[in-house]
Amino acid sequence: MTLARAQRGEMVAFEEIYRRYSRACFQLALRLTGQRQSAEDLVHEAFLKMMDTIGSYRGEAPFGAWFRRLTANAGIDAMRRQWHRVNADADVLLENMTAAASDLAGIVDADALLARLPPHARAVVVLHELEGYTHAELAALFGQSESYSKSILARALKRLHGLAANATSASQVAL
């Protein structure tokens, strides 16, 4: 009912959708971007895109899943726009990741852990591990090979595993 009204462009229906899905959307945006302000921008962009394209939603997939895909794709589009600032070379990317993530302070939860990854690696981890994207889909989205996405994922997870283990033991020592 709400969806049908939203497809007719009713603002009240859009507001209802916002109430239901904005938290999940913001959570995903925060994981993808690692920054609150960027996450807000992404939610803003995703909802605008949803309001423009909801007419094309045919109900084949649940609305929540469709909207998560839309948000993730909007996140990748934003990342592509900043592509010149993101180093896409896998080795350089992972070297930077190692250097940036050595400080354990502030790793209080999974989201804080994710925020330690460079944008590209974080997006690969979030999309593959949490959103169910395949390596083939990631390859197409990022314009890279599947082996590139597999390599980034494996090395990022290894790094996150080490950081989480260290953070856990550091917090136990502190206690």
């Binding site: 939860d109 999974a110 852990l113 591990e129 949490l130 997870l157 996150l160 595993h161 989480a164 953070a167």
Partner: peptide, 13 residues
Amino acid sequence: LHFRDIAAQLPAS
């Protein structure tokens, strides 16, 4: 390795 397993070592967000 899977991210959910790694995240399980840390408090929930």
